[in-house]
Every structure is written in structure tokens, then in C-alpha cells.
Amino acid sequence: MVLKIANWLDERVGWSGVWEAIFLRKIPKVNWFYTLGSATLFTAVNQAVTGILLTLYYVPTPDHAYDSVQYITTQIPMGWLIRGLHHWGASAMVVLTVLHMLRVILLGAYKYPREVTWFTGVFLLLIVVGFGFTGYLLPWDQKAYWGSAVGSSIAGAAPVIGEWVLRVVRGGSDLSAVTLARFYGVHVWVLPASLILLLGIHMYLVIKIGISAVPQREDEA
């Protein structure tokens, strides 16, 4: 019965072809380092799921940010777990993204015909770092506040335009409610939208072109 419905749907939707293209595609014999991209993708999904859950209770204003985070951590069942997964998942995502990049560099996977995959990957790395930077401020505790104060002041060190960039980043010359609001907006709207777009292209190319093999010596190839 279930099979019948599945077949009926597949005949009209064609998802089994998509499934085969994604999960049953041929790959060369590779090693565990080639799973770092998938591992990074897993942390991205983790961040998305736990991040969406956090927005159910989190309020991004100086009045409520800290208290709502404490409320999530201490009052909501499993709130500590959801927040913990998001907190540690963030670090894991940065680490895995960098390791994935190193693998691509060291095994030469960025070369023809995969340059465009690499370009999108470079911007994805910037997005991941942007997530980390904007997310750091959101708990609005001392570490968050001063960490972001120092972090954003780096922008002000640039010659000529530094002062102006600093005010764009902070939404004023000091860290304030405006800073918190725009960091939150960037963290939950701008960056996720960019991530989905670039990740879509990135993975389309990985599947379309196929992954690279482990480089061999000339005489063995």
C-alpha cells in the first residue's frame, strides 16, 4: 500500500531520480578526510535546527536578551541542551569548515573543473565566520559585550574608511541596542539566506561534477 502510494507519487514527482543522483552516485575510492564536508553540513543543519528553536524564546533587546537566555538555560526543559548544541555546534562548525578547506587545498580538489565550487566555498567560510561573530554578541553578557566591542573595533582600525565602517557595523559609534538588533538580524536573516544560496550552488556542483579522487603519482595513474 505504502509502496503503491510511493510509486504513484514518484511517477509524478520523480524524486527517486533525485535521490539516486544525490545518494547513489558513483564516487572514487577516497579516505575519511573526504567526509569533512558532510560533517560541516551536519553542523550547519544542527545550527539551523537549534537556532530556530532558540528564537522561540530569545528576545534581541538589551532589556531582555540576557534574561531570556537565562530563562532558556534554566527554566525551559531541554533549553540547556538546545543552547548547548548551538553554542558548541558553532565552534565545531568553524573548526570543521577550516579542516574541510585544508583537505581541499592539500589534496588539490580546488583544481579544474572544480574552481567554482572552491569560490563558493571561500564565501561560505566568510559566512561561517560572520555567523560566529554576530552570534557571539547575542547572549548579551559581559563576555559577549566586550568581545564584540573589541571585535568590532578592529574594523575601526582600517585607514580612511575605518571610522565609517565601524559605525556601520555597530549602528553608531558605541555598542548599543542598535548593535544588538542588527547583529541579530544579520545572524538570523542575512547570513542564513546567503548560506542557503551558496550552499545550494556548492552542493549542486559537488554532485554534478562528482568529487575528486586522491591524487596519485604520475607513474601510478
Binding site: 544542527n46 535546527v49 537549534t50 528553536l53 522561540l56 525551559i76 526543559p77 531541554m78 533549553g79 541542551l81 538546545i82
Partner: peptide, 12 residues
């Protein structure tokens, strides 16, 4: 592991 805590968290 994600789903069950998520439900507990949402319906709290």
C-alpha cells in the same frame, strides 16, 4: 535525539 528534546522545549 533532536526531535524529542525539541518537542519538550516547544511545549514547555
Amino acid at each position: 535525539g533532536f526531535g524529542i528534546p525539541a518537542i519538550a522545549y516547544i511545549i514547555a
